[in-house]
Amino acid sequence: MVTTAGSKIPRTGIPFPKSEYDRRQQKVLEAVARAQLDAILVTAPGHLRYLTGYHGFGGYFAPFPLILAPGRAPVLVAREYDAEAVRAEGCVDEIVCYTHQRDVAKACAKVLRQYRLQDRRVGLELGCWNLAPADVSAVLGLCPGIKAADASHLVASVAAVKSSLELDVMRQAMTITDLAVRVFRNVVREGVSETEVYAAIAGEVSKAGGEIWRSVTLVFGDRTKLPHGVPTPHAIRKNEPAMIEIGGAKHGYAAGLVRSVVLGQHRESESLHALSVEALEAAIATIRPGTSAKVVDAAVRKVIEQSGRPGAFRHRTGYQSGIHWTERGNLSLEPAAEDILEPGMTFHLPIILFGETGHLFGCSEHVVVTDSGVEVLSRTNHKLFYA
């Protein structure tokens, strides 16, 4: 294991000033104190990027834990192979490296002992991506005195409230999303395939200097029965529906949006879309500071239940957005969620409904909670588009 605090390669990948990351880390340490913890090991990819700037592409190999403790310098435990990228594209000065997968626990334990945390209360992101049970067992085996606590929601609760810098990035990402949706609406016509439409979108986004988040749903016809369907050579025919869920991205911040098209007529999809719009607008009308997440979810479910089709809605109303679109452990708008909405929080609200024949159809908005209510980020209306 190698410890290093310097690099000959200049930092090139940090999208925000170092002071912004210092602020975020301090907010997390304040949350650590409120949770009566002595430290936290941050391992979720999105949370690491939020706190360090490093994109985390090397983390598929094994966790790259960030160890935060009050009064101590942040330490990032990373694979030695990725060390130069971690230094150049992140803001953490102290890096402890490991070479083989079996060594990550040893490297973590070394830092925990140096910081005298081997018998203290340490938060672990047990409900997030990238931390396997074997990783937890290995660390606790080397530091058996640690009192481990689940801190899955801790960083997420801090990251949920965006700074003005982050909101500016989210708005830039949504500009790209709106462009992608406009291309989608303009290109869908009889005989065109999903892959052809996506290629047209990617081309226009590239011309604009933008980036598309890697997860894209684009489905035509009977393929709208597939959740999270990726583009294929399948072509659309007359009187069929089309739906896209796509997000422009900036510095890892994605601004997702769901929009739908009907080529001709498709009564089931048209009916589902009308209901999704009514439910979506009920959610937007409910969002304001001080409201709990479950109240927003309840507003949507009330509309669906009153329609006589309660089985059409089979997921949560929305989720916290920002870095990493699909981070586990982030705040959700769902029935049991007690989280209180605050100004600066951003949410994606995808109201996608199931029809009797299995078609999925709907729309969404991306919103920011403001001091007085809510701001909708997209400039593309959520009405059903007919091609």
Rank of each mutant, 00 (worst) to 15 (best):
E245W: 09
K250P: 00
Y253F: 15
L257V: 02
L257I: 02
R259N: 15
S260P: 07
V262Y: 12
Q265A: 14
Q265K: 15
R267W: 09
E268M: 08
L272Q: 06
H273P: 02
H273Q: 07
A274T: 14
S276H: 13
E278N: 14
A279H: 01
L280S: 08
L280A: 09
E281T: 15
E281S: 13
A282C: 04
I284T: 06
I287L: 05
P289M: 10
S292I: 00
V295Q: 14
V296Q: 05
D297Y: 12
A299P: 06
V300C: 04
I304V: 15
E305Q: 11
Q306E: 15
S307D: 08
S307V: 06
S307E: 05
R309F: 14
R309W: 11
P310L: 01
A312T: 10
H315Y: 09
T317N: 01
G318C: 05
G318Q: 12
Y319K: 02
G322S: 05
W325S: 08
T326I: 01
E327H: 00
E327P: 00
E327Y: 02
R328Y: 03
N330H: 04
S332Q: 13
P335T: 05
I340D: 03
E342V: 02
P343D: 06
P343G: 11
G344P: 03
G344H: 10
